[in-house]
Design a protein around this nucleic acid. Structure first.
Length: 284
DNA sequence: ACTATTTCCTGGATGC
DNA sequence: TGCATCCAGGAAATAG
């Protein structure tokens, strides 16, 4: 399941491979598709646009589009249409979504919802079996995530996010309006490293604990990005390669296995409908 | 203004 | 073997 490190890995790979390429035509699947914008809006925005850059914002992949080399004639007084420059294609991968760059001959996977044919002859495909992913376009650049970037935010602002929250710290970490990009894996892993139980009320964390959580979260995200993300279920990067951070998980999906620090069996509880893993001895 | 719960969706695992 | 059931989870919607 793509969280910040996985999305970062995919976005970097895509940027390397398709930046500068041009989208010649777009196919969108026929059935009700995971689209936030209308299908026609997506098609008209993407077609004939150039991919300027691909980057990550929170858990979103942002494709910055430039005007295509081919001039589109505008009548004076007409509002710029969706193909004007600075449009953005926003992709949220949900649980099982992925963007794959491939040759057209490569067999079309089931659950392919969008195909963008590129000037280079390759195809950029959005594939998402579980259909939790979302596609949208914005006509003016300026897409921004609601929450703070965990790797950019300062420790004071980070601590302030949680000061008045009664909700469990685990839920607060997952709240994208506070922080964007943290999902279940890295919430559990950062809480373990910080020695904090997931059920603790966010507001009850001391200054010192918040500082530890801040450091732990940044550390685990950086390590995971360096490892190419965690390949749980079917995550692979835009090259089709698996990440390997799943081998460095200390608590996530390790219920009953010994804590790597103290050998106490790792516990699993459900908090706000999400499974949460922690060491009952190392985390207070 | 917050917080908790439900819903969406499919493939893989489990159970009888 | 086959069929039903459960579970995973991000975020939007709904309820409190």
């Amino acid at each position: 399941m793509p969280e910040l490190p996985e999305v970062e890995t995919i976005a970097r790979g895509l940027d390397q491979r398709v930046a500068g390429d041009r989208i010649e035509s777009v196919w969108v699947g026929g059935k009700p598709e995971p689209l936030k914008s209308s299908a026609s809006e997506i098609v008209s925005t993407l077609e004939h646009s150039q991919i300027a850059r691909v980057r990550r914002v929170g858990k979103h992949i942002v494709v910055d589009l430039g005007r295509a080399a081919k001039k589109v004639r505008q009548k004076p007084g007409n509002k710029p249409d969706a193909t004007s420059k600075n449009a953005q294609w926003i992709v949220h991968l949900g649980m099982t979504g992925n963007l794959i760059v491939t040759q057209p001959e490569t067999e079309l996977p089931k659950h392919t919802h969008l195909i963008a044919r590129l000037a280079s002859g390759r195809e950029l495909r959005f594939v998402d079996p579980r259909r939790f992913g979302r596609l949208s376009v914005v006509k003016e650049s300026g897409f921004a995530a609601a929450g703070a970037e965990p790797l950019d935010v300062g420790v004071e602002i980070f601590a302030g996010l949680f000061r008045k929250r009664k909700t469990p710290i685990k839920s607060a970490l997952l709240n994208q309006k506070l922080l964007s990009g943290v999902g279940n894996i890295y919430a559990d892993e950062s809480l373990f490293r910080a020695g904090i139980r997931p059920r603790r009320r966010a507001a009850s964390l001391t200054r010192e604990e918040l500082r530890r959580l801040y450091e732990s979260l940044q550390q685990v995200l950086r390590e995971a990005i360096a490892a190419g993300g965690s390949s749980i279920s079917d995550y692979v990067d835009s090259n089709g390669d698996e990440g390997y951070f799943q081998f460095q998980h200390r608590v996530y999906q390790r219920e009953g296995e010994p804590c790597l620090v103290c050998e106490t069996p790792i516990k699993r509880v459900v908090i706000a409908g999400r499974s949460s893993h922690y060491c009952p001895k190392c985390q207070e």
